[in-house]
């Protein structure tokens, strides 16, 4: 790994480690010893997404797990994954997942036979069949 890519990965890891906090691009770029514009350009080139898109993806993935495995309210989960506005969170979630957080929770809970567990339909059917003996619907 080149020195530049190693420094970039430090900044990316910083985003991941602080994904539930409000962290500015300049602070992240400083972790990589780069200017914000250089960090932004290189990050997008290497990882195929902007730092902000990466952050949103991490937060939404965490929110998806929490929505299914916990009983906390959507607004509580919204705050815990780093958003202060429920509207912004719902909008970002819907854009990524294709449905609102409440609808996502309702749908996966309805599919699962066990409380607070992901339904078997959430994983590829070949794995469900292989490890759980669940035939595809």
């Amino acid at each position: 790994m080149s020195s530049r890519l190693r420094r970039l990965s430090v900044g990316r890891a910083f985003i991941a480690d602080n994904r539930f906090e409000a962290v500015s691009l300049s602070r992240v770029a400083a972790q990589s010893s780069m200017s914000p514009s250089h960090f932004l350009r290189l990050f997008s080139d290497v990882y195929g997404e902007t730092p902000n898109e990466f952050l949103i993806r991490l937060r939404v993935e965490q929110a998806k797990a929490m929505l299914v495995t916990e009983s906390a309210s959507v607004s509580d989960i919204c705050e815990r994954v780093g958003y202060t506005s429920l509207g912004s969170f719902s909008s970002l979630f819907s854009k990524r997942v294709g449905m609102a957080p409440t609808a996502y929770r309702r749908r996966l809970w309805a599919m699962s036979a066990e409380h607070f567990r992901f339904p078997v339909q959430a994983i590829p059917a070949c794995y469900a069949f292989h490890f759980l003996g669940k035939a595809p619907n």
Binding site: S9, R12, V46, Y47, E61, A65, V68, T69, S112, A113, E114, R117, F118, P119, V120, A122, I123, Y127, A128, F131, L132, K134
Partner: peptide, 19 residues
Amino acid sequence: GMDVTVEGGFRWLTVRVPS
């Protein structure tokens, strides 16, 4: 990538290269 326990107790654990 994913680390969740699905019904039936199977742990769906995936990892990936960041880039």
